[in-house]
Design a protein around this nucleic acid. Structure first.
Ligand SMILES: [Mn+2]
Ligand SMILES: [Mn+2]
Ligand SMILES: [Mn+2]
Ligand SMILES: [Mn+2]
Lengths: 219, 219
DNA sequence: TATATAATTTAGACAAATCTAAAAATATGT
DNA sequence: ACATATTTTTAGATTTGTCTAAATTATATA
């Protein structure tokens, strides 16, 4: 498989996990930052290789083989991200770009040895689950901070938007995975939240709150 | 730079270190396992980018920029090889192929951090010197075992042929970098050598002896 | 349901990296 | 020095991944 083919497979997988089962040509084009006509061409090729189900005008979805392939690429991507943070002291906002390159390195043994070196991590630096050799992985609690009731306490377990800008915003406000927070109040006007985190009081806009995954806890 | 361009630059560099200053189109083609016509096309492109000196029918050589580029790729290649052996327990016959892929990953910071993780190694698993950030590197003793006088003692410091077949042959005969050996006799008929290594007596064909780099030592 | 709008595909083009076959330049040997 | 052999380049084709513009199909709306 070429890098480009792998990137399309990954894009379809991610769009698929985000809700719909069948993905539109335009959705793939937007995510890949290419033109819809290029997507059509690629879908024909991936279809011939048995990686996607595709009928013209009907959208696209991954076959079992396509899903397996996607999980393997995502496994590589996320293991490399852990490596960069744990072994090379990169920050969580720096690793994605490099992992985009490293995910295409071909060597089953390499990735298994890397997994071992990192002590078989289950989550990447952004809290995303790392698929195992056979594609199995732990579903993370996918509750958003914006969705939990006022008064509850929760632990930060992941980010929905893992862009460098958002991650650096979190750093600046000392919000990290594992932090415990309590929702004090929701402002009716703009749905912003007032929370306690790490002995501090913080105001988070609705946009921030809807990009933080949390796990509710009892006190 | 594309992977292909980088591989051509590296090939020209290696051919250049092997003796001649100006490299022929055919030599590049043979090393890259491509056709001479493909080389001509690529030389025009690299020439326009200022990486090689090229005039038609006159062969090719690296510019200062080309040499710098080559050294950077070789630095990455060899650091990754050390990583694979030191951190992931690969054997020296397994690493070259994977390093061929990893050498094209783009990130200055990545490679500097890797260098640090590995404690700034000066040689790769095959005894080849690792260029530093600024292209400087330690010249290894490039004396071949086949060239040193009978009766002398030497330490094995590198391999000229680093193909997996040759490396596994060395493993099988317990010949490793750092081993001390003494040349006992050279057979006139086929130039094979009888040596002492590690308390053992061993017979090495001329072909073997002319692919092992050694450093002479006094007893 | 007819029509307008949006999504998707097709047709044709292009750049990159390769190839084969033929032409041109260079090197070699007597 | 001349003929021959070798090397190198050119010309034209192919594959991959992309694009634009036009045609087609599907969807939404009045
Ligand atoms: Mn990532
Ligand atoms: Mn990618
Ligand atoms: Mn190597
Ligand atoms: Mn390479």
């Amino acid at each position: 498989m070429t890098h480009s083919e792998e990137n399309y497979i990954k894009a379809i997988f991610h769009l698929g996990s985000q809700g719909e089962e069948v993905i539109s040509t335009n959705a793939v084009a937007e995510r890949m930052e290419t033109k819809p006509s290029s997507v059509t061409d690629m879908m024909k090729k991936l279809s011939e290789k048995g990686l996607v189900h595709y009928k013209r005008y009907q959208g696209v979805s991954l076959t079992a083989l396509g899903t397996k392939t996607a999980l393997s690429i995502i496994r590589k991507h996320r293991l490399w991200e852990v490596f960069l943070v744990e072994k090379l002291d990169f920050t969580w906002d720096e690793v994605h770009e490099i992992a985009e390159q490293l995910e295409h390195i071909e060597s089953e043994k390499l990735i298994d040895k890397l997994d071992e070196l990192l002590s078989f991590p289950k989550f990447d630096p952004h809290g995303d689950p790392i698929p195992g050799k056979n594609g199995e992985f732990i579903e993370r609690d996918n509750q958003l901070l914006s969705q939990i009731p006022i008064g509850s306490s929760a632990i930060c377990v992941g980010v929905k938007d893992s862009s460098a800008v958002f991650l650096r915003f979190l750093d600046k406000n000392n919000i990290a995975l594992g932090n415990k927070m309590k929702i004090v109040e929701k402002e009716e006007f703009d749905n912003s939240l007032r929370i306690y985190i790490d002995q501090r009081e913080l105001n988070l806009s609705q946009q921030i709150a809807s990009n933080l995954y949390v796990k509710m806890i009892k006190l």
